[in-house]
Design a protein around this nucleic acid. Structure first.
Length: 560
RNA sequence: UGGCGGAUGGUGUAAUGGUAACACAGAAGUUUUUGGUACUUUUAUUCAGGGUUCGAGUCCUUGUCCGCCAACCA
């Protein structure tokens, strides 16, 4: 019985791509086949915007019993490199997706060359010897029509001869170009005799020096889709004007009719998403690399402590539509907190230490307390935490003159030490300058966590670490990279808006079990946030990245 | 002064001519050995004008605003 109810209550509305696919399935358009592709250019690292595309392309294929190709759009040898190919493959798999085929546009260079010959033979392409300046002039503007090139009416034979000689390396870069012969007065600028092949004496990361002519995006993408018999070629909105050319090529080449569909790319508050800008941040040293935890790259998010599950959930929640958007980064933060709350082990780490001496606790005695690893996970188990006469608590957890509703330590005030005893602050120790250096407290003997017979009720519970066993750790707290919400729309250069305080490095004290943490392992430092162990860690000094803080309602109350 | 997309709370996304909903963010509260979590409550929405219709966020029309397009980039 529950089967039907469950199905109908959990039914989610479909995005417009899914609606198109369902319609195609209903009409039997491709015999029920769904094949998508994820087509990055290997010239940079993947970012969260690509994650949206990956989740969409792989997601719809999975949902409708189809498959997805990974295809590297490597038609421009000067910007591309195998370093990027490797990182892209790694990131897609890390996100949890597996492609059926790994292809490269460069796999099709022979094929694409034949397509060009075919177009020439049909009188639909010609070799132009104009300079780029001349071509720009003849192109016209959005409001003025273009004019035909003087080379436009060459014979098929002459074009064939010239194109073969281009391929054979007889001409210098920039002297000859192959253009499609379409319409110089089209209202769509893309259709004004677009360049489809250019000369580049460049070493290609896969084809080496075999070619000195390379197809343009518009002459490679649709044809690659067609060769692979992609049924739904999903790309971002800025390619809308290219669709007319995409269809023109397929029609005139008389090849498999793949169709292009466009959705709005992801924009996130307080960051940038363009590869050009991200590259600048890396090259000019604003961040430490593509995997800097402040970067919106997949590798950066991974190092920061994000999980694939949280990123997939995020992509699911933001939806897919055709209007420009700027997603609030707090949604991403919500997704990672939601996941980590369920899976991250709790640990106690004091970030801004204040020494507390428990005056009635015997010197030299170490008592083991037991604390649950994760209250959200009944099978998470317990760990031992040493308690002794000298401990550290957070500086923020003491106020000499407490404000109302402050439930932490203050002269005469009592708090619970998490998983240990209730203590009372008896005396404040200060240096000559009046700065608080330590607290003298007493503990309530029969208040131990688990067997508290004291009958005392306290409102505050603090995390703490035993001074003698504490591990010094480095904590890297990352904040938003930019100071403004909408970086792309902000006045001036985007770098003017960089947040100078986006990284704060602090030394803290951790409870001893953290010595066994693995690189990448995620924890909740109680009352502080979620953290993961960074690869920069050494046995002498553990380094943790703060993924995201805990939701802090006290901070808001205190600020009032 | 061209063409093409688009416009629903603060931010996103639904509603496919028939009660404008869901999530995040915000506010208030309950529980709590994390001022976390969970739970409850709550604030706030159809760009504007005209038209079609019993009925319009949805269709038509006019306007406004936003985005994209003039790389030998993708």
């Amino acid at each position: 019985m529950s089967e039907i109810t469950k199905e109908s209550t959990e039914e989610k509305s479909r995005n417009f791509i899914e609606q198109i696919i369902e319609e195609d399935l209903r009409t039997g358009k491709h015999g029920g086949r769904v094949l998508t592709r994820f087509p990055p250019e290997p010239n940079g690292y993947l970012h969260i915007g690509h994650a949206k595309s990956i989740c969409l392309n792989f997601g719809v294929a999975q949902r409708y019993g189809g498959a997805t190709n990974l295809r590297f759009d490597d038609t421009n040898p000067v910007t591309e490199d195998t370093e990027y190919v490797d990182s892209i493959k790694n990131d897609v798999q890390w996100l949890g997706f597996q492609w059926v085929n790994e292809f490269y546009a460069s796999d099709y260079f022979d094929h694409l060359y034949e397509f060009a010959i075919k177009l020439i033979n049909k009188g639909l392409a010609y070799v132009d010897e104009s300079t780029s300046e001349q071509m720009a002039t003849m192109k016209g503007t959005p409001t003025e029509p273009g004019t035909n090139s003087p080379y436009r009416d060459r014979s098929v034979e002459e074009n064939l001869d010239l194109f073969v000689r281009m391929k054979n390396g007889e001409f210098a870069e920039g002297t000859h170009i192959l253009r499609a012969k379409i319409d110089m007065v089209s209202s769509n600028m893309i259709m004004r005799d677009p360049i489809i092949y250019r000369i580049k004496f460049a070493h290609h990361h896969r084809t080496g020096d075999k070619w000195c002519i390379y197809p343009m995006y518009d002459f490679a993408h649709g044809q690659s889709d067609s060769i692979e018999e992609i049924t739904h070629s999903i790309c971002t909105l800025e390619f809308i004007p290219h669709r007319e050319l995409y269809d023109w090529c397929i029609e005139n080449l008389e090849i498999f009719p793949s169709k292009q569909y466009e959705f709005a790319r992801l924009n996130l508050t307080y960051t940038v998403m363009s590869k050009r800008k991200l590259l600048q941040l890396v090259q000019e040293g604003y961040v430490t690399g593509w995997d800097d935890p402040r970067m919106p790259t997949i590798s950066g998010l991974r190092r920061r402590g994000f999980t694939p599950e949280s990123i997939r959930e995020f992509c699911d929640r933001i939806g897919v539509a055709r209007r420009d958007n700027l997603i609030d980064v707090s949604l991403l933060e919500f997704c990672i907190r939601e996941h980590l709350n369920k899976v991250a082990a709790r640990r106690m780490v004091v970030v801004g230490p204040l020494k507390v001496v428990i005056t009635n606790f015997p010197e030299g005695k170490v008592e083991l307390c037991h604390s649950e690893n994760n209250p959200e996970d009944p099978e998470g188990g317990m760990r031992e935490v040493p308690f002794s006469r000298e401990i550290y608590v957070e500086q923020d957890d003491f106020m000499e003159v407490p404000s109302k509703k402050y439930f932490r330590l203050a002269p005469g005030q009592m708090v619970r030490l998490k998983s240990a005893y209730i203590i009372r602050c008896d005396e404040v120790v200060k240096d000559e300058e009046g700065k608080v250096t330590s607290l003298l407290c007493s503990y309530i003997e029969n208040s131990k966590s688990g067997n508290d017979t004291s009958g005392i009720n306290v409102k505050g519970t603090l995390h703490w670490v035993s001074a003698a066993q504490a591990l010094p750790v480095e904590i890297r707290q990352h904040d938003r990279l930019f100071k403004v919400e909408d970086v792309a729309a902000a006045e001036g250069d985007f770098k003017d808006h960089i947040n100078p305080d986006s990284l704060q490095v602090i030394t803290g004290y951790a409870e001893p079990v953290l010595k066994e943490a693995d690189v990448g392992e995620k924890f909740q430092f109680m009352r502080k946030g979620y953290f993961c162990l960074d690869a920069d860690s050494t046995p002498e000094k553990l380094v943790f990245n703060r993924t995201v803080g805990l939701k802090d309602t006290w901070g808001k109350v205190a600020a009032k």
